[in-house]
Amino acid sequence: MDYLYDGTFEGLMTCIYYHYKKGKATGIYVISNYQQSIVYQSEIVETDILKAEIVSDAINRLISKEAYVHVYYCYLSNDAEKENLILDFLIFAFKYGRNTMNFYTHEKVLPINEIYKRVAREEHRVLGILRFSEIGGILYAKYSPDNDISILLADHFADRYKHEKFIIYDEKRKKVVVYANNNWEIKENINIDDIEFSIKETMIQKLWKQYFTDLAIKERKNINLQFQFVPSRYRKNMTEFK
């Protein structure tokens, strides 16, 4: 049976629940991307928070926290096969329990580790290169990450900008993190047009650009290295490259 879910993490966990309690999953897919299979039947799974929690809890308890974090990061990735990699991994992991993560290179474990690393690397990179501008007293950042990492950024910036208000806008997914008064939330299907900057904002951006440009030691120019650290797809939203 192919299980179809709504794209949420809870939905995915509910599918895992049904795999064990109802009938083996031949595959898990997001409803909107699903291509009808000739071989397998499919069933739409209604997301059930309680069932999802049972599975999340079991991963944490019977396998490890590390495994849970890996699965969650994998879910946030843009990997086309992620649901089935997670399914395969969990089937393996529930068998080997606490010892699972020691099988670093096992074919069921390695993909999860690699995807986790990719997402974590992007998360870490974006913590540094996300650029905010001040607009009417609010800090505003626009970006388009490869993976759906907004939720991973929220706590970091909520802590960094404790006494401020901010908005982080994922233009690819039309998703925002909104933070004010010690609380953040995520909103979907939002469209934000480009906004004009104040004179002071423009001046600070220019100061930064000047500083950034001056800092480079010309005799040691190494553009390739710079591209490795900041691939071009990130640059359109970075003040110093505009």
Partner: peptide, 21 residues
Amino acid sequence: ASAAGICHAWSSDGRCISLLK
């Protein structure tokens, strides 16, 4: 670089910028 904190920018010589120096 990461243990020292977060890199915020990389100048055209490939160095990490994390502090206003």
